[in-house]
Design a protein around this nucleic acid. Structure first.
Lengths: 205, 205, 205, 205
DNA sequence: TATGAATGAGTGTTCATTCAT
DNA sequence: AATGAATGAACACTCATTCAT
């Protein structure tokens, strides 16, 4: 039974985006031709242009598709958990788990996301901000209940968390032989939560 | 008085690399033509090829040039300091300070470094590893003297530190209006050293 | 009440041709897509191909349609008039009047007719020749009754007349602000009939 | 002996323009690829772009090149002649002679000049106006000395002359078998000067 | 009969690289 | 050593045409 037209169009777009993610992650946005994406999607070159404005639109749409998918899954998974620390644990574990489950997607996100092109950066700013807000909401909640330290700006902590997770994924992609990704969640969280120093009086700056 | 030939050649290469860094940081590696780099360096297109193999060699050489310069300055500045925690503080402050002092260089490093091209990644792996080793050396030293916690793998902690610093610089580049970079060193280090949680018994996972 | 099939088909073709004339006149044959013609005609792209072989056939058919319509109307209007000079006056006035009445059509004829493509030229040669024959018939008739000078080849005179009218229409299309087209018929005819020189002995060549 | 750089550049541009005129005249602007023009000029595709902005600039530049060349030669030839009628004769004869001498150039002018594209039309308007001004100057001069009739607007007469010459050239290009072009100047001028009617009282409209 | 999604050949243009001067 | 004119391979994108529905 064939789907109704709008569903068919959405399905087609999804097929193309998934092909684009695979192609871009393997060869990079600039190292990849539109023809290769089309071939990966099993279509003719021209067909892509029925669904996307051009190559750049393909990249931007792929980012939004991926990021929004991640956010949605994170939200669904963390909404049950009330405790901020537990939510943070969940978020990091899920993030690492999803990256490990789809290596193409992870590679796409880690290595294609930092495009120097202003237009691209602007277009993906919103979903990225969405991710940052999730972390900050957890931290603020933790401050409210007293489990997150109040003396540090939420934004600074968010950057540490985001940067640490990001770097962990990148390192795993570059050296996959060094082990699984999801098992790194534990130690990573331990450092994020308690710092690198042995408990005791902090040395003065 | 003209310099001796080898010095003259090195000087010329340096001029070209600095031009390349400016050009790449502004327009991105792929958004930039060799002709633009040549113009920025005040030479003819063909001249670049007397000093570098091609565009890619230019990028790789620029990375090495920048990274080795950074490492050298970090080494010179931290060699005096014996205490691991103090050295870590110094390293982070210096890193942020150098990025703030040369925005083109910072932009170049943050946004051009993650190239999906395998050849490029391979070529810059060595100096990047050098940076990682500096951090790990400090951490190991700290473990030895007992100020760094021994229960977490050095590599995991290094990734957290590197990722956090990296993300902090990126955020500053994307939102320069939000303040100076070097003043962020204090809170950032505080989080890295002590974690995001309020001191007390850690909640069980 | 629906028409009989052949009439319906002819009606449909006419709709398409009129749409093509509008579209081609506005954007030019090469600046216009088949999709635009279809949209102008209120049909799907593919439908055009049920009535015409392709884009070129559309152009050629449009030319024949327009030229044959013009000829028919000219014939109907001039058949009553017996005097050659009067018929020539009528023909020029009608031509200008028809162009003025349908600017799209005029634009189409003036700017699309001279196609460098050999196949197109060949295909529209016949109706164009028909127009030339009308003028020549009038001139020959004038020669017969003695009002047109016999010392000049009919073909040369026909070219002067055709060229002058053609240029007048073109100039009006390019500079519509300079006035109405039909009022130019009088002076134009005066020049064609009596020349640009003040009456008197012609200067020797 | 090699020429100095500016001469070399101008020479190169000229080579390209002459190749473009040949290619466009044979296949039409739209039926011709940039690669074909390059091949005709004996260069690589990319070389054209060192001298012209693109295909459209090539067309516009070719028009200006041709028209300015024609005007210059017309001016040089007619400047000696003082009598307006004689100058008009000269102008028409020269025009036909130049067209006959270079069939590619004639074909290019007659069939490519009427481009529906607004930008192209605008760009070639100026040299075309120059040609019109030459004719009008002669006519006004004739009115002043009394050999051109004063009762008809100069502009109307100019259009008749221009249109008649234009149509004569076009007809010769389309039917080259019907004879030489320059011998048509005499009868053509006779009609333009004295009209198509046998001398005598003009029939009332 | 009518549709419009899909096709894929075709083209203007860019740009890294070379090499004669 | 330095130049910069010349090259030509490569690529994003268009659009006339087809055909399954």
């Amino acid at each position: 039974m064939s789907r109704s037209p709008p569903q068919r169009k959405a399905q087609r777009q999804r097929t193309i985006l998934e092909a684009a993610i695979r192609a871009f992650s393997r060869q990079g946005y600039h190292g990849c031709t539109v023809a290769q994406v089309a071939r990966e999607a099993g279509m003719a070159d021209g067909t892509l242009y029925l669904y996307f404005q051009g190559k750049e639109d393909l990249l931007i749409s792929a980012f939004r598709f991926v990021l929004e998918g991640l956010l949605e899954r994170l939200d669904r998974a963390t909404e049950q958990e009330a405790d901020p620390i537990a939510r943070l644990r969940l978020l990091v574990k899920l993030h690492l788990g999803m990256m490990e489950a789809d290596r193409d997607l992870a590679s796409f996100l880690q290595f294609q996301l930092r495009q120097p092109d202003e237009a691209i950066r602007h277009a993906i700013a919103e979903p990225l901000t969405g991710y940052a807000r999730r972390i900050e909401a957890i931290l603020d909640q933790g401050k409210a209940v007293g489990t997150i330290r109040p003396d540090i700006s939420t934004r600074v902590m968010r950057r540490v968390i985001f940067g640490a997770v990001d770097e962990t994924v990148s390192a795993w992609l570059l050296h996959p032989e060094s082990g699984t990704l999801s098992t790194r969640a534990g130690p990573l969280l331990e450092v994020l939560l308690r710092g690198v120093t042995r408990p005791g009086p902090v040395p003065a700056p």
